[in-house]
Design a binder for these strands. Structure first.
Lengths: 215, 215, 215, 215
DNA sequence: TATGAATGAGGGTTCATTCAT
DNA sequence: AATGAATGAACCCTCATTCAT
C-alpha cells in the first residue's frame, strides 16, 4: 500500500502543507472540532509526522496563528510604510487589510475568530496583530488631530477608543464582505473610509470622502 | 463557593441556574472545552439533571445563546422604541447595548464569540441578533439620509455596509471596554457616537458630537 | 397538569397494566433496550409506582416471564388434561400451543427469545415451561412406544431427544406462523402433526432411519 | 489467562482475536450486557483499538454474526455439495450442522439467540443463514416428494412449513445436545433423522396424519 | 395511592499522543 | 523522512433507582 502520496519532500514544504491543512480545517470546523487525523489526512501525511514537525495540537494552532498574523501584518505594514498624508496612509492600510481578508478567508477566520475563542494563550497571539493595527491607527489619529487647524487635544484613552472602533468596523466589514460574492476589497475599503473618515455627519452633508488618486 | 446544594427546587429556577453556569463556563473556557461535569457542578446539580432539563450539550448551548440573544435584543429594543430624532434613538440603543455588554460580560462573550465559532447551527442563532441590530441601524441611516437637507441618496448596499461597520465598531468597543476596569457604558457610547455620528473628519474640525441632554 | 391518566385504580389492575406494557416493550425492543421510563409511560403511570409495585427491573422481567409462562402452561395443560389416545392428546396440546402463540405474540417472544438471552436467572424461569412441555411429550412418546404393536424400547435419552426435537419444531413453526398474516393455528398444528406424528409413527413401527454407511 | 499482552501484530490477526473475544462474551453475557471494556480486555488490547478496527459496538456485533453465519453456512454447504440421494445429502448437512454447533457453542449462541433478540438489524443478518438452510431443506423435500413412488404433491406453503419444522427441531436439538456433556454430533444427527426422515418418509407414502374430528 | 425532583454508576465513543520500525 | 500499531484519559450521555411530598 502507501501509494498516492508524494513522499520525501523537504521539511519546509511539508510544514507549509500541514499549516495549510490546519488553517483550512480549523477555520471551517473550529479548533476544538478539528482533529489531528483530519489535518494529517488533508496534508497528505501520517499523524506521527505532524507531531514530529509541529509537536502538538496547541503548537500547531499557535504556528497557524503566527503565520497568518505575520502575513497580515506584513501586508499592512508594507502598504503603510510610506510618508504620505494621514488619510492616504490609512486608505493604503485599510485596502491592504481587506485584500488580505478577501484572499485568505480561512486565515482571517483563524486569526479573527478561532484564535480568540480557545483560551488566553491563543488569544494573546492574535492580539499582537490587533494591537499593532490599533497602535498604528491611534498614532494616525493623534497626529492628524495635532496637525489639524483647530488642533484639538484628544485624551489618549479617547484616541485609542476611536482606533478600536475603527479596527472593529474594519473587521466587521471584512466578515460581511466575505459573505457577498461580488464584493471587492476596494468597495469595502471605500465604505470604511466613508464611515470612518468623513463620518456619518459629513455623509449627510454630502461631503463624501474620496479615494485618493494614484493609490 | 458556598457548599451544600440547596435541594428540591422548581424546574424553572433550576434551569436558570444551569444556564447561568453554562454561560459562565462556556464564556471562560470555550464551548468545546466546557465539560458538562463542570457546568453541572457549578450549577450545584448532578449531570443527569442537566440532561433531563436541557437535553444535550448542543441544546444547552443553543438555550444559552437564545437566552442571551433575547436579553440583549429586549434591552436594545426597549431603549429604541421611542419617537425621537435619529441621533437620539441611536444614542439610546447604543447606550443600552454597552450597558448590557458591561453587565453581562459572559453572556456577551457567548453571543459574540462562542456562538460564532462552533459551527453554523449556533452561528445562525446568534446572527439573528446581529441582523436585527444591523437592520435597525440601516433604517436609521436611510431615514437620516433622506431627511437631511442635502438629501443624499445612498445605495442600499452602501447603507447596509455603513451599518455593518457601525455594529462592528460597537462590538469592538464593547470588548475593549470590558478589559478596562474603570470604563463605563456611557463613555463607550460617547466614543462610538463621536466616531460614528460626527465622523473623524468632523472631529478634526472640532465639531464634536454631544450627548443629548436629558437622555 | 397531570390530566389524562385515570388515577386511583386497584393495585391488581395497575399491575396488570404494567406487565402488559412491559411485555410489549420488552418483546419489541428487547429486555436490555427496554427502559423503565418507556414502560411506565406506556402503562400510564409514573416510574416510582412501577418500583413500588414491581420492585426492580429484574423483578418486573421475572414477573412478565412467570405470567406468560403460567398462561401458556395453563392453556396447554387444560387442553391435554383428557383421557384421550396419545395422538389426540398431542393434537390438543399442540393446537393450544399454537393458539396461545398466535394470540399472544409479544408474550411468546418474551418467553421464547427474551427470557433465554439475558442471563441464566431469567432463562431458568422460562425453562420451566419447556421442561414441562418436553416432559409431557416424552411421556407421550414413551407410552405410545410401549403400547405400539411392535413395542419398541427406546432408550430414555433417545425418547427425550425426540421430544426436544418436537418442541423445537413447534417453536420454530410458531415463529414462522406469526410472520405469515393469513396463517392459522390449525394449519400450524396440522403441519407439525404431519411432520412429527407420521415420523414418530414410523419409529413405532420399527422402521428406524439408519445412518448411511461410509458417509 | 496467560498474562502479558503480545504486542504488535498484523491487523487481520488482531481483528480475529477481537471477534473471538466478542463472540465469547456476547454469547455468555448477552449483547447488551457485554461491555466493550470486557471484550477489549479479553482480546488483550485497549478499547480504542477495537473501535479503530471494528468501528462501533453494533458493527462489532454485526461482524461477529456475519463471521459465524459464514462459517456455519460454509460447513453445511460443503457437506451438502454432493450428488447423493436426498436422505444422504440431508444426513450430511445435518451432521455438519451439529458438528459446527458442538464445536462452536458460543458462535452458535450468538447466531441462534443473541442475533435474534436485539433488534431487526441484527436479526436480518442471522436470518440469511436460516433462510438458506430452510430453502435447502424445502428443495430437498419437494424433490423427494416428486421422486417418491406415490408422487405426492405438497403445496409450497406446506413444504416450507415442514422445512421450518425440521430446522427448528435441529436448532432445539443443538441447544439440548450442548447441555449434555457426553452427547455427540452423530447422536444428535441420528435423533433428528429418526424424527424427521421417518416422518417425512411417511408423508411421501401418502400416509398423512389427519386431524381428529370433533377435537 | 401516586409523583416531580434528583442522582450514582457505568457504558460507548473519541482524541491527542506515542512506540517500534 | 516516514508510518502502522497502539493506548490513557476524558467526555457525552443514559439508566435503574430513590427521596420527599
Amino acid at each position: 500500500m502507501g501509494g498516492g502520496r508524494t513522499r520525501r519532500m523537504p521539511r519546509a514544504e511539508r510544514e507549509r502543507q500541514m499549516l495549510d491543512a490546519a488553517v483550512q480545517i480549523i477555520a471551517r470546523h473550529g479548533y476544538a472540532a478539528a482533529s489531528m487525523d483530519e489535518i494529517a489526512e488533508l496534508a497528505g501525511v501520517s499523524k506521527p509526522l505532524v507531531y514530529l514537525y509541529l509537536n502538538s495540537k496547541d503548537d500547531l494552532f499557535t504556528a497557524c496563528i503566527r503565520r497568518e498574523a505575520a502575513a497580515l501584518t506584513r501586508a499592512v505594514r508594507a502598504a503603510v510604510r510610506s510618508a504620505l498624508p494621514a488619510d492616504r496612509r490609512l486608505w493604503a492600510g485599510v485596502l491592504a487589510f481587506f485584500t488580505y481578508t478577501a484572499e485568505h478567508p480561512d486565515g482571517w477566520t483563524v486569526l479573527h475568530l478561532q484564535a480568540r475563542t480557545h483560551g488566553p494563550r491563543f488569544a494573546a497571539e492574535a492580539d499582537a496583530v490587533r494591537a499593532e493595527m490599533t497602535a498604528f491607527v491611534t498614532r494616525l489619529i493623534a497626529t492628524a488631530a495635532r496637525e489639524s487647524p483647530h488642533s484639538r487635544d484628544l485624551p489618549a484613552r479617547e484616541t485609542e477608543g476611536l482606533a478600536v472602533a475603527l479596527i472593529g468596523a474594519a473587521e466587521s466589514l471584512a466578515d460581511w464582505t466575505n459573505t457577498i460574492p461580488a464584493a471587492t476589497a476596494v468597495q469595502a475599503a471605500t465604505t470604511l473610509m466613508n464611515f470612518a473618515w468623513s463620518g456619518l455627519g459629513d455623509l449627510m452633508s454630502g461631503e463624501q470622502w474620496t479615494e485618493p488618486v494614484g493609490a
